[in-house]
Design a protein around this nucleic acid. Structure first.
Length: 425
RNA sequence: GGAGAGGUGCCAGAGUGGACGAAUGGGGCGGUCUCGAAAACCGUUGUGGUCUUAUGGGCCACCGAGGGUUCGAAUCCCUCCCUCUCCGCCA
């Protein structure tokens, strides 16, 4: 959520941000109008309330009956006016909040304008593996090794579900454990959070209202399955005021992510690249505004280090405004090269959110030496999405006989397995 | 799931219709005292909104959440949420 004052004082900047994302700007005017109306109503209704408060106090100490009755009658009609204005105010408030909830964050100046096609590759790391045989995609490798079973996923649940088996399941678990340990060494505190959350929690992270159709919801309890650990992590400090010396808070969390993927029906249906349920290790930071840029950069480096340690060739993309998430000022994507399906796969998206989520979720802090409170800045990034990382590991480390060499860093968790062979499944 | 108790400021805890944004104690902050500290004493100490010729002030709102009654609600009524204790049941 943007600061309404920004719309009041610099609507052009807000419009420019929307334009950069390829959006219409009419809602800015609408918000500005509602804001003016809101304050008119406030002034009016608060004057009446002040009057009522003052007279009610008098009534409390009055002895004379007739006067007293007169004042009570007068206040009764003031009360009616207040009720009418209050309900109009409520309407205006709701409209304004509705609009404010869909105005995205303003992209930084260095974010390229445009959509997905305008994303800029800013860095490439590692060599794409060369094979002297035809590299197989994971949807062939997995079933052949007996470590990915698509049929069973469909049998149990439906399309876009799969089952990992034996060394495959273990490999994913190894990746999760290793990544968490890595992030702990990088200075993050591990969190285990609920995977089912309240609506306000989803709203706070900025996933609602926009992604309503992409979320799984328990209508009986009014709860949502998390689409990413970013949601519960943002929620950890909802409605609270942190002390400046507590910051920065750096968290890492493993969680499954549940997405209905209604918006990408028919896309990426093959393999495990895009499922309704996938695991992820997330990084998240709460910082003071002055530190958010450097904390953002170090998070990008932390995510890159994960790919590097696994020996996965990757490229770093600066996302264009239209492809940057609503909540973010700026985002980088990390895409790893998958040698079998021969494509770049997004395994991480790191976003500097500024105070956008903090304002929605009411996460504040007391600036040192300063007065009052201010909103914290938040930064989030995947410490890699699991299925796609798994794809990279499988496809890039395959050998002519169809076996997979386990990356060195994961061996501790693989119980002595250093090569996955068909019989290991 | 059943029965009961309760949710008030940073914490503890009072307040059952009017002078209560809220007693009292603790903590924090500032000060006096001191070579310094402790103790003691004095002062101060919430958040948000809005208005304002404004480094200050006015007003409004907030005592779990949302409604209602009333001239007036922390206080009365309704609904919901949460916590604790006991019983039952299932991981």
């Amino acid at each position: 959520m943007l600061d309404i004052e920004l719309i009041r004082e610099n609507p052009e900047a807000v419009k420019a941000g929307l334009t950069k994302r390829g959006m219409q700007t009419a809602i800015v005017e609408e918000a500005a109008k509602l804001d003016v109306r809101r304050r008119e109503l406030l002034t009016e209704v608060e004057t009446l309330k002040a009057e009522r408060n003052a007279v009610s106090k008098e009534i409390g100490v009055m002895k004379e009956k007739t006067d007293r009755e007169k004042k009570i009658a007068a206040m009764r009609s003031v009360g009616e006016k207040i009720d009418a204005l209050d309900s109009e105010l409520k309407e205006v408030d709701e409209k304004l909040n509705g609009i404010m909830a869909v105005i995205p964050n303003i992209p930084f100046d260095n974010v390229p304008a445009g959509g997905e096609a305008d994303n800029q590759v800013v860095k490439e790391w590692g060599e794409k593996p060369e094979f002297d045989f035809e590299a197989k995609p994971h949807w062939d490798l997995g079933p052949e090794l007996g470590i990915i079973n698509f049929d069973q996923g469909v049998r149990v649940t439906g399309s876009r579900f799969y089952v990992l088996s034996g060394a495959g399941a273990r490999l994913q678990r190894a990746l999760i454990a290793w990544m968490l340990d890595l992030h702990i060494r990088q200075g993050y505190t591990e969190k285990y959070t609920p995977f089912i959350v309240k609506e306000v929690t989803v709203f706070g992270a900025g996933q609602l209202p926009k992604f309503k159709d992409n979320l799984y919801k328990d209508y009986e309890e009014d709860l949502y399955l998390v689409p990413t650990a970013e949601v519960p992590l943002t929620g950890l400090h909802m409605d609270s005021i942190l002390e400046a010396d507590q910051l920065p808070l750096r968290y890492t969390a493993y969680s499954p992510s549940f997405r209905r993927e209604k918006m990408s029906a028919g896309r990426d249906v093959r393999g495990i690249k895009r499922g309704h349920q996938f695991d992820k290790v997330e990084m998240y930071k709460f910082t003071v505004p002055e530190a958010s840029q450097s904390e953002f950069e170090s998070m990008v480096a932390d995510a890159e280090a994960t790919c590097q340690a696994l020996g996965l060739p990757y490229r770093l993309l600066l996302k264009a405004a239209g492809d940057t998430s609503e909540a973010a000022h700026i985002s980088y994507d990390i895409e790893i090269w998958a040698a079998g399906c021969k494509e770049w796969l997004e395994v991480s998206s790191i976003s500097l959110v500024g105070d956008f989520q903090a304002r929605r979720a009411a996460i504040r802090y007391r600036p040192k030496g300063g007065k009052g409170t201010a909103f914290v800045h938040t930064i989030n990034g995947s410490g890699l999405g699991l299925p796609r990382t798994l794809i990279g590991v499988l496809e890039n480390n395959q050998q002519a006989d169809g076996s997979i060499v386990i990356p060195e860093v994961l061996k501790t968790w693989m119980g002595g397995i250093d090569v996955i062979r068909p019989e290991a499944g």
